[in-house]
Design a protein around this nucleic acid. Sequence first.
DNA 1: GCCACTGTTTCTACATAATAGATAAAATGC
DNA 2: GCATTTTATCTATTATGTAGAAACAGTGGC
Lengths: 112, 112
Amino acid sequence: MAKGDTLGEFEHLVLLAIVRLRDDAYGMRVRREIAARTGRDVTIGAVYTTLERLAAKELVTSELGDATPERGGRAKRTFRVTGAGVQALNRTRGEMARMTQGLAYPLPEVIG
Amino acid sequence: MAKGDTLGEFEHLVLLAIVRLRDDAYGMRVRREIAARTGRDVTIGAVYTTLERLAAKELVTSELGDATPERGGRAKRTFRVTGAGVQALNRTRGEMARMTQGLAYPLPEVIG
DNA sequence: GCCACTGTTTCTACATAATAGATAAAATGC
DNA sequence: GCATTTTATCTATTATGTAGAAACAGTGGC
């Protein structure tokens, strides 16, 4: 496998959030999606640096939108997952599936 | 969530390998298990530093065994997953499940 | 027009995790 | 004793994760 092909665990979550949010995947919203689904309250800085890194790897692209007519409605930068990004997600999913094959979740506290 | 509670992606794989291997989880074997199931050929150094980290976090314990009567049969250091390790695996699994809920794999190249 | 406020993005610095590659150790067989 | 095998340890570097503060761009009240 080529190097740089594996997703870090937080990269993985961010990528999945973007997939879920479709057209509405901008930084703050990604952060909320992850918080809502995982219970982790990551900071917005963590999300953006990860988004930047994913963009550098060309697993996502971004586009600056128009400002919305709401109080504080600064223009949003929305993200999309690229073909390579989808491939990375599918590959990661496959690896995890093979590693967990035959295991029954939740795993019992005492193994063996 | 308490800090240091999340599993890095490679930590996750190593922990799963130990669960799979039960009584036979020592460094070289963990490496082979991961290679066989994911296609990644990680170096042995990568595996051991990760095992050390997991031990430092008390997600695994290790025990030095007896030498086996084979050519090159040096004593093996075998690893077991602790209760906290199992909890970390179950928690991580849950997070991922909620993040992927409703998504059909493999994801299509073009999203949306 | 200025100010407070809101939702968003950007910047900077540091901590933790991943990875490689070389070296050392402990056993066997000849 | 020496070559060979299997395993473990050490050292260094890069990549990822995380926090927190600052900057931006808009709204609305007065």
